[in-house]
C-alpha cells in the first residue's frame, strides 16, 4: 500500500523558514503572498491487510516518529 502524510507546524509555533520564504516571495514580486508555513511531506510504502489497519499503523508512526506533538500536527492525506 502507498500512503502520504503531511506534518505541519501548529499555528502558534514560530516558523522562521516559512517567514523567510514569504519574504522571498515578496522580493520576487509576489506581494500577494501574506503567509507561508513550511511542513514535511512523507511518501510511505507499507504492508497492511486493509486501509483501516494501514491508517492505524500510520497514525502510530506519525505520532511517535514523524511528528513531535509539542509543535506539530499531522494529517494522513491518502492511503491506496
Amino acid at each position: 500500500m502507498k500512503a502520504t502524510i503531511c506534518v505541519t507546524l501548529k499555528p502558534d509555533v514560530l516558523d522562521p523558514q516559512g517567514q523567510a520564504i514569504q519574504k522571498a516571495c515578496g522580493t520576487l514580486g509576489y506581494g500577494q503572498v501574506s503567509q507561508v508555513r513550511q511542513g514535511k511531506f512523507f511518501e510511505i510504502d507499507l504492508d497492511a491487510p486493509n486501509p483501516e489497519a494501514a491508517k492505524r499503523l500510520l497514525g502510530e508512526i506519525a505520532e511517535k516518529l514523524l511528528s513531535n506533538r509539542i509543535i506539530e500536527n499531522y494529517r494522513i492525506l491518502s492511503i491506496e
Binding site: V13, L14, P16, Q17, A20, N68, I70, I71
Partner: peptide, 16 residues
C-alpha cells in the same frame, strides 16, 4: 526533549 526526559523542544534558530 524528544524522548520526554525533559519538557519542550528545540526549534530552528530564529535567524535560521
Amino acid at each position: 526533549c524528544e524522548s520526554g526526559l525533559l519538557p519542550g523542544i528545540l526549534l530552528r534558530n530564529r535567524k535560521l
